[in-house]
Design a protein around this nucleic acid. Sequence first.
DNA 1: CGCGACTTTGACAGATGTCAAGGCTTGTGG
DNA 2: CCACAAGCCTTGACATCTGTCAAAGTCGCG
Lengths: 251, 251
Amino acid sequence: MSTRPVRTHVGLQMFLDRLALRSTLGSAEQEAVLALPTESRQFGTNQDIVALGQRTTHACLIAAGLAGRFEQTSDGDRQITALYIPGDMGDLPSTVLPRAASGLVALTDVQVLHVPHDALVQAADRHRLLALAFWRDCCIDAGIMAQWMLNVGRRDARSRLAHLFCELSCRHGTRERTASLGFDVGMSQAHLADALGLTPVHVNRTLSVLRQQGVLTLKGRRLTIHDWGALKDIADFNAAYLHLERQPIDG
Amino acid sequence: MSTRPVRTHVGLQMFLDRLALRSTLGSAEQEAVLALPTESRQFGTNQDIVALGQRTTHACLIAAGLAGRFEQTSDGDRQITALYIPGDMGDLPSTVLPRAASGLVALTDVQVLHVPHDALVQAADRHRLLALAFWRDCCIDAGIMAQWMLNVGRRDARSRLAHLFCELSCRHGTRERTASLGFDVGMSQAHLADALGLTPVHVNRTLSVLRQQGVLTLKGRRLTIHDWGALKDIADFNAAYLHLERQPIDG
DNA sequence: CGCGACTTTGACAGATGTCAAGGCTTGTGG
DNA sequence: CCACAAGCCTTGACATCTGTCAAAGTCGCG
């Protein structure tokens, strides 16, 4: 995973792209986003970006790498509840809920841009459409989490893995407006297990089933999808929940 | 579950109470909430209040009964991702995301107050604190869902059930500022299974284990908790994520 | 070259699902 | 007031999936 830091402006631009993908913003709003103050930080694999229960005064925009939101059992079992790729502001919700219930962990080397809550609230106050866009953004993430819950609660290991890969493929491919058939998943099999409510051993076995069926190959963190149709069927995947097409905002 | 309809004003007041529990609101905001236009509807057990994928122009405030949000697999397996008790606006997120990804189902006889999205957006526009309160409310629900995911992904059946009961007990007991040790769960064992990613048969067996251990009794939808301490331990429960204490809003 | 982190495998254990039948409750209509 | 039906709950026997433990193999990096 790339480790060279991205320029602040590039990070904000990716965030803006993400917002603009789901909400129509005027130029004033766009400028307000790009003018947000930031502070860059680096984290290594498995480092906590935000510890569980930590109170923060800023949100974390992922500028490079892969981060995960997680919850934890008192005996240390982790459940990753969301994955964040560059352009995602993983803990935007912390803006209105500073006492984070979840933690944020770096799954690869990660570059984070800290954005003060104050600045976000001010931007939302000044720009009505931005307030709605932030709110909407949080709701979209909640919708993704609901799908994950369906995944973990109601599908077997093979479908779960397939579903996660379909999702990642679509999210990575956004720019090409098509699913990406080969990409760097970044996370280890243990991380996959934490995201899917499985065991690393079982993830490993399930991956080899998928490989034997000729659906995909995962080698050294690089995923290659050989048969998108089959993968989609196994996953029972429908991309609608990702809201990857632009649509006008209400009101 | 009671079926006599509640007055519109009472429903809005419960919703306001819920918001005020988490956010400090001025009297202007409070009046704006109580002035929201509503339309009352009744639903019977297992009826869909909002079908999967349905596009709506209003949000649903639960005035009486118990409702659940759900996702569904293409072969019909359901996962309930959230539970809503009176005063909850189950699909507040639909205000900014009208193409609901999830469905809303009545788990008992339910009275719903429809509140037009327009009215909610207008109220948020006029009252900055209300906009933040709505946003926050959605984030709190997302936080609860994250805990559910930990529950489904990382705990065994006994803990899952215990955790759900602890949560419901706290949510029901809000007014007494303490957990409620006996209450009507409303949902069938099949519904519990859908909420916990289990099978009705296994829920049944797990309940009888809990009963044999003297922790609780569930008879005819009425839950009695005999040993709150033990239940909490089994569940690994910590109520912080429910945000049941008031706290000032940012900014 | 060697260490550490990750992946792969095997044998076995345990939790949960499946199928199928029977028992209870509750509400309804005669 | 009784009989019946529908929906729910309960139980048993058995199948399957996933977890556990432990060891060996691989890969990348210093």
